[in-house]
């Protein structure tokens, strides 16, 4: 099924969770924050949050800035 991650379409397996997505993107060990359908999703809920077609996920991290 297709979901949107950071504005881009991504195909994920059925019955996958946000934790699966974060793992697939190699971000488990990184300092990131996730928004799930515009709501902040706490890290401890990544494993519970199921993904459904059309879901919008934002994953941010820190970059250089002033």
């Amino acid at each position: 099924m297709d979901i949107t991650v950071n504005g881009e379409t991504q195909t994920v397996a059925d019955n996958s969770t946000v934790a699966d997505l974060v793992r697939a993107l190699d971000l488990e060990q990184k300092r990131i924050a996730v928004e799930f359908n515009r709501q902040i999703l706490r890290r401890e809920l990544y494993a519970e949050q199921m993904l459904a077609a059309g879901d919008e996920v934002e994953i941010v991290h820190f970059v250089g800035g002033g």
């Binding site: 504005g7 924050a33 941010v60 820190f62 970059v63 800035g65 002033g66």
Partner: peptide, 15 residues
């Protein structure tokens, strides 16, 4: 620091 989207297509970048 600034807060930006993670690049999901090119993940080789250091943090």
């Amino acid at each position: 620091v600034a807060v930006r989207r993670v690049n999901v297509t090119d993940r080789s970048k250091e943090n």
